Amino acid sequence: MKQSLFESRHQPDWQLFSAHLDALEKGKADPASNQSFVSEYRRICHQLALAQERGYSSHLIDPLQQLAMRGHQQLYRHRSPVGMQVLSFVMAGFPQLVRAQWRFVCMAGLLFFGSLIGMGLLVYGFPDLVYSVIDPRQVAEMEIMYDPAARRIGQAIERESSDDWMMFGYYIMNNIGIAFQTYATGLLFGLGSLFFLLFNGLMIGAVAGHLTGIGYGQTFWSFVIGHGAFELTAIVLAGAAGLQLGWSLVAPGRLTRGEALRLAAQKSLQLIYGVILFLLIAAFIEAYWSSMSWPAPIIKYGVGAILWALVFSYLAFAGRTAHAPD
């Protein structure tokens, strides 16, 4: 079905649902009309899924996404306690939002992982290149942290396991700071997010290439593979959210830049909620599992592979529902 026909056929439904949402948000809804709200909401979600599947333009999909999100908020505000709303977001809302923003996610992933892999290979092939990216003192610290003889891997100073909770807090603050920086600088027409995706990718790639080249690869990779599933994915999603902000300013479409930015911020902030959840999980794994030196590398690789598969499956399949053809 052509987009113009789809839009003309369903425009009355969208206007009706928008008016219903306005009334609910102002507390002026007719109780009798609330009985039809759930069916209206499901119809909007179904039409949004069809529009995305058929590749209709963002001028059609973005307003539908906004209606669906507003409907979701009203539905669970009136029907579910806060705990259920959070559970619904974690189990379905967040992965659905990631899939809905797949273009920004793919762009951020290519920038980050492309620069990481590219720099890693370059430094592995040309070892002295690492010093053009990272200060020699920091390189020396990295070598100490990932020395196979270290009792606690990934830490510049030996620590007792009882201090893991301190590292947990440090990892949370550090990682959330990086993610927020990558997201918020998207307000610079997306250029800030582009920069930090590339910068972080180049830095991590340089470290990975150098440590692999000097024979510390097994220590390094067995350390990062576990928490990296959540941490690296979170950086990509933060970058995607920032690129979404930037794109709303570069190409606002029929909206004013202010209105386009407001809509983009509402969607991207929900992505950031999920990013924070991922970073909390990553910090826990890094503090209490990754730094341990007693598990054999093969065990860490196995656990890491399971975690990567879990993250991919969650983002790709969680919250999916069957839709009938229209």
Results as ranks from 00 to 15, higher is better:
residue 267 K to N: 13
residue 194 L to D: 06
residue 245 L to G: 05
residue 54 R to T: 11
residue 149 A to Y: 13
residue 233 T to L: 14
residue 293 S to T: 04
residue 37 F to W: 10
residue 319 G to F: 00
residue 218 Q to M: 08
residue 26 K to Y: 02
residue 101 Q to K: 13
residue 114 G to T: 11
residue 142 M to F: 15
residue 86 V to N: 11
residue 171 Y to I: 09
residue 305 A to F: 04
residue 299 I to C: 00
residue 52 Q to W: 01
residue 155 Q to K: 10
residue 233 T to P: 08
residue 64 L to V: 11
residue 267 K to D: 14
residue 147 D to M: 10
residue 185 T to R: 06
residue 79 R to L: 15
residue 234 A to E: 09
residue 225 I to C: 13
residue 69 M to V: 12
residue 115 S to P: 06
residue 69 M to S: 13
residue 29 A to Y: 11
residue 114 G to F: 06
residue 254 R to T: 14
residue 58 S to H: 13
residue 240 A to W: 07
residue 269 L to A: 12
residue 58 S to F: 03
residue 91 M to Y: 14
residue 321 T to M: 03
residue 269 L to H: 05
residue 72 H to C: 10
residue 118 G to Y: 09
residue 150 A to W: 06
residue 314 Y to W: 01
residue 235 I to E: 06
residue 267 K to I: 01
residue 145 M to L: 03
residue 259 E to M: 07
residue 14 W to P: 04
residue 29 A to R: 10
residue 159 R to I: 15
residue 135 D to I: 14
residue 178 I to W: 03
residue 192 G to S: 14
residue 301 Y to Q: 02
residue 209 G to Y: 01
residue 82 V to N: 02
residue 206 A to Q: 01
residue 144 I to T: 15
residue 261 L to V: 06
residue 276 I to N: 05
residue 11 Q to A: 08
residue 147 D to P: 13
residue 291 S to F: 00
residue 155 Q to V: 13
residue 54 R to E: 15
residue 291 S to Q: 07
residue 97 L to I: 12
residue 300 K to V: 00
residue 283 A to N: 06
residue 219 T to N: 08
residue 21 L to K: 05
residue 232 L to E: 11
residue 274 G to Q: 04
residue 52 Q to Y: 07
residue 259 E to L: 10
residue 205 G to F: 00
residue 213 G to D: 03
residue 229 A to V: 10
residue 142 M to Q: 13
residue 47 Q to Y: 07
residue 4 S to L: 02
residue 313 S to M: 03
residue 78 H to P: 00
residue 241 A to V: 14
residue 15 Q to H: 04
residue 295 P to M: 01
residue 42 R to T: 07
residue 277 L to G: 15
residue 228 G to R: 11
residue 175 N to R: 05
residue 100 A to M: 14
residue 93 G to A: 10
residue 254 R to N: 10
residue 181 Q to S: 09
residue 306 I to N: 01
residue 231 E to P: 07
residue 87 L to M: 15
residue 284 F to S: 10
residue 215 G to Y: 06
residue 86 V to G: 12
residue 288 Y to V: 02
residue 287 A to P: 06
residue 244 Q to N: 10
residue 213 G to A: 08
residue 164 D to W: 08
residue 100 A to K: 14
residue 232 L to W: 15
residue 126 F to D: 12
residue 122 L to F: 13
residue 320 R to L: 09
residue 161 S to K: 13
residue 43 R to I: 03
residue 92 A to I: 04
residue 313 S to W: 10
residue 195 F to D: 11
residue 77 R to P: 04
residue 193 S to H: 06
residue 268 S to M: 04
residue 27 G to P: 02
residue 268 S to F: 07
residue 213 G to N: 08
residue 57 S to R: 08
residue 205 G to A: 04
